[in-house]
């Protein structure tokens, strides 16, 4: 079981780093969707002995939402906005990967100095959840298009989700669903906004919204 957890950890790190180094937005969405599917398996993996119906339900729900619904919405938004690439991000791709590795080191170092309650599932899962949160934040800050920022939020949420699943073990289903719903609404609203921004300005560069200040 520990090995499966480690595989999840490795996949998380790799998807995060690849996300930082990819300019193609379709590929980015696919990466985030894949990350969602991997994370969906977590609730089943955490409870090594007994797998309850609740955990399975949570897993299926997560996979459906993060792996199918969100990506579909985003794909559609992307198609309507008719862009394929993140052109000219604020921070270049090589530098982004470098920053990602730095973030990984920082999160490993910080979690070494934290005392985290709860079952010691895998010593790497906490730093990696923190790392995922940092990557999400970095992605929001460093990219220009609104769609990348949405992806950043999703990755951020993935990090929080990982942390929560592992630390609480039995996540109250309602809370988790509430969080997912929030994000769902957020994605939905963002999708509509992207569509409208695009129709109004012919691009979806969020940094040019400041021209609305008048």
């Amino acid at each position: 079981m520990n090995m499966l957890m480690e595989t999840v950890v490795v996949l998380l790190i790799l998807t995060n780093l690849m996300l930082l180094g990819t300019s193609r937005l379709f590929a980015c969405i696919r990466l985030v969707a894949f990350q969602g599917v991997v994370l969906g398996c977590l609730p089943v993996l955490v409870h090594s002995g007994h797998v309850g119906a609740r955990a399975v339900g949570l897993a299926v729900g997560t996979i459906l939402l993060k792996g199918v619904v969100f990506p579909r919405l985003l794909f559609r938004a992307l198609r309507e906005a008719n862009i394929r690439r993140e052109v000219d991000p604020f921070v270049g791709y090589s530098v982004s990967i470098f920053a990602g590795i730095l973030a990984l080191a920082v999160s490993i170092w910080t979690t070494r100095h934290l005392t985290i309650p709860g079952p010691g599932v895998s010593t790497l899962i906490f730093p990696v959840s923190l790392f995922t949160i940092l990557v999400g934040l970095f992605h929001i800050v460093s990219r220009r298009t609104a769609i990348s920022q949405v992806l950043g939020y999703l990755v951020l949420e993935n990090g929080i989700y990982t942390f929560a699943v592992v630390i609480v073990g039995e996540v109250p289903l309602m809370v988790e669903l509430g969080v997912l719903l929030d994000i769902y609404v957020a994605v939905f609203v963002m999708g509509i906004t992207i569509y409208h921004i695009n129709r109004e300005f012919d691009h979806i560069d969020a940094d040019q919204l400041d021209s609305l200040k008048g």
Binding site: V9, V10, I13, L14, L17, I97, L104, I108
Partner: peptide, 12 residues
Amino acid sequence: ALSALALILVLR
């Protein structure tokens, strides 16, 4: 980076 990741995994 893959090698470095492997090192992180085996270092614990």
